[in-house]
Write a protein that binds this DNA or RNA. Structure first.
Lengths: 237, 237
DNA sequence: CATGAAAAGATTGTATGCAATCTTGGTGAG
DNA sequence: CTCACCAAGATTGCATACAATCTTTTCATG
């Protein structure tokens, strides 16, 4: 499995070259190889991928649209640094969308899709058991892919794209505000979700998915200061 | 009210110049001045706005991300031509998201926001009564802004952006598949929604919003052929 | 020594040039 | 007359050059 195998999700103007760079950068950001706030210099990225700044700019613009990169005029692009408030909005959005997706997926699930779910859960379990940073990255990806597969099975490309954005940004949020590595807990819940899905128990599935998202959010430390201690509050304004 | 007053919604890499062009093009597409499928030549757009193709490409890429423009490698950008299936997905997404937004908006509504709703409804009524194509465009915008104001009041920037995309694409869909100009009907429903919002009757509001979306979709003619008569079906394959 | 201003360096924003690809009009064979 | 093929024109993809802006260093001054 190479790094290029990720199909281009969002609409893209130009080609695959910018798309490939976007995918590589996204993998690095979501996999927490690039810390929030890291500067993404056009020249530097271009040198790494051996393309001109033109292509890099297109890739960065796409990532900015996905909310994974924040770009400031005349200053450049940086890995996004979601605030606690943004984090809450991300999870509120997931809380609204994912149960509905799960309900639709339940109506459309078939044997082939169940196979893919099972494979993904096995992969996740395997990576959780494995040591090393590469396994951590793979574990994060497998966990996210579980939610994306749900959206894919639901058969709505638009919601699938929204979920791609939300799942990716969630990874950033967890990297910033995650209290514990609750990956094994999340994994157990994934198993439960798959069970309900296989059993066709839509109502239980919807409940489990909602609770799963609640649990992930509950594991965050979104105290007022978060990481950037809001100057105004610090000074009592 | 100028054409520039639309605040830049999505994340944008570069500046306002590409953003301004994107906003102008979006207004024209959503306002049905640019028919679906229309070619958007980089050189032509650049000449119109007196910028280089570089800037135009950035604007077109943004619109492609929003789903208002479809861009094909080495062929250029075209106003999107949503298929009946895409249309169904757009409305399924709205059906899932908007009631949740309405519930949140109901919890956060205040007098100032109610004022803005009232103003928007008045504007809509005024444009419906007025003749001419400019009034039609303004009517479409006011109707869409009603839904966007709901999302704004809900206070979730991410869902607001999703709604911006969905509302814009809905306009394209209605232009393509709309059976009747059900604008007055929609307007009456907007009034009902505002009533429920003002009364703080969350459950009624949620129901009305859901029904409103159903009604809009029910007015579409999404028969299998749509507009591009699925060759395979036409040939009996 | 701290502070502020100004110049040097680095980075981004935009325009433009060239190569690659697509489109179109014409021409000849069947 | 129809169809396939090919060349000319037009358009996009990409790299690069230059201008504008930001950042850092230097240096003079209080």
């Amino acid at each position: 499995m190479t790094v290029h195998d990720h199909a281009a999700p969002g609409g893209q103007l130009s080609d695959d070259r910018a798309g490939a760079i976007r995918d590589r950068l996204r993998l690095a950001i979501v996999g927490r190889k690039l810390a929030p706030g890291t500067k993404l210099s056009e020249a530097e990225v271009g040198a790494l991928f051996d393309v001109s700044r033109t292509v890099v700019r297109a890739a960065l613009q796409m990532l900015a649209f996905e909310g994974l990169v924040r770009s400031e005029r005349n200053r450049g692009a940086f890995v996004a640094n979601p605030s606690p408030d943004e984090a809450r909005q991300i999870f509120a959005s997931r809380r609204l969308i994912e149960p509905g997706i799960a309900r639709e997926a339940c109506a459309r699930i078939d044997a082939a899709a169940l196979e893919r779910f099972a494979a993904l859960i096995a992969e996740e379990a395997s990576q959780i058991a494995a040591p090393g940073p590469a396994a951590r990255q793979a574990e994060i990806k497998a966990s996210g892919d579980f939610h994306l597969l749900l959206a894919e099975v639901a058969g709505n490309a638009i919601l699938h794209r929204f979920m791609e954005e939300l799942v990716a940004r969630s990874s950033l949020v967890i990297a910033l505000y995650g209290r514990s590595d609750a990956s094994s807990c999340a994994h157990a819940e994934h198993r439960g979700i798959l069970e309900a899905l296989a059993a066709g128990e839509a109502e239980r599935l919807v409940r489990l998915v909602g609770e799963h998202i609640d649990h992930i959010e509950a594991d965050l430390d979104l105290a007022p200061q978060g990481r950037a201690p809001a100057l105004k509050d610090a000074l009592g304004f």
